[in-house]
Design a protein around this nucleic acid. Structure first.
Lengths: 147, 147
DNA sequence: GTTTATGCAAACAATTTGCACGCGG
DNA sequence: CCGCGTGCAAATTGTTTGCATAAAC
């Protein structure tokens, strides 16, 4: 089991959203949402489809696309493109935002969080008239072992 | 005129590359390269094609795709995906780093530079034992017109 | 002349849409 | 029942590839 508390709170966020909009709770939406929420960091549509079909072989890719769009709309998922043409969805633990620092030699990825940087970003965005929803910060370099 | 010095130095970088690889200098490549290099910051393939056809209506989209790939290979262009499905190419004056803020509704992209953020990143990386080579910061949200 | 480049059309891949049917409320 | 959801197939969109011809060297 993966973090039952935050998981169920997220599922209830989806359900609230569905109710507000007069949408329906279906088995497919539940399956797809659970797969996404228990994915580690990023997951692609192809992968979601494969896992979903293990639970219900009749699920179609259209439904996965549409459900993921729903999850984006209610703030549970963030779509990302890493340059290979496919969209990946990121599942971010809402209270644990982090950025990445990546070693270009050994590919080690470490995570960090710096509130000062976050605050400055908000200030920056605000001065440009933007309302921030999310952001991505990646630092590339050499780690202590490789430098 | 836009920075004639750096522009011609970049064009000669392309020509050197072509020579090394035994490739040919053609009118199309010159037109497309100049359009790209004098574009402000980012430019998409559709836009390049339109401008190129104003100079030579027979230019095909295939050639634009292939030429932009060339420019990437010789280090003059950086491909970027901002989430609307199309690839944009960034023309960066090699010493002028900037970050991006992207509107998720209208796809408008603005640039900014904030030295405080850059400094904090260095400090952050240093405390993790990393030597920074480069980084990428993208903020996503709604712009003043869309919020 | 030989080799690479071009432009068209066809192929591809990821995603979206139209529609008849099924299911949730 | 009524309306939204689903899954299929067809349509769209961005990009790549095959091929005959044209241009560079």
């Amino acid at each position: 089991m993966v973090q039952p508390v935050s998981l169920s709170s997220k599922i209830s966020r989806l359900n609230t959203y569905l109710e507000e909009k007069g949408l329906k709770r279906t088995l497919q939406r539940e399956i797809i949402t659970k797969i996404f929420l228990s994915s580690d960091t990023h997951i692609g549509l192809d992968n979601i489809l494969i896992k979903a079909r293990r639970k219900n072989p009749k699920i179609g890719s259209t439904t996965v696309y549409r459900t993921m769009k729903l999850l984006v709309d209610c703030g549970l998922a963030t779509p990302r493109q890493f340059g290979d043409g496919r969209t990946q969805y990121e599942n971010l633990p809402e209270d644990d935002h982090h950025d990445h620092i990546i070693c270009l030699k050994c590919s080690r990825i470490e995570e960090f969080h710096n509130q000062q940087i976050e605050d400055l970003q908000l200030k920056m965005a605000d001065s440009l008239g933007f309302k921030v929803l999310t952001h991505k910060l990646e630092i590339y370099g050499y780690c202590s072992a490789c430098r």
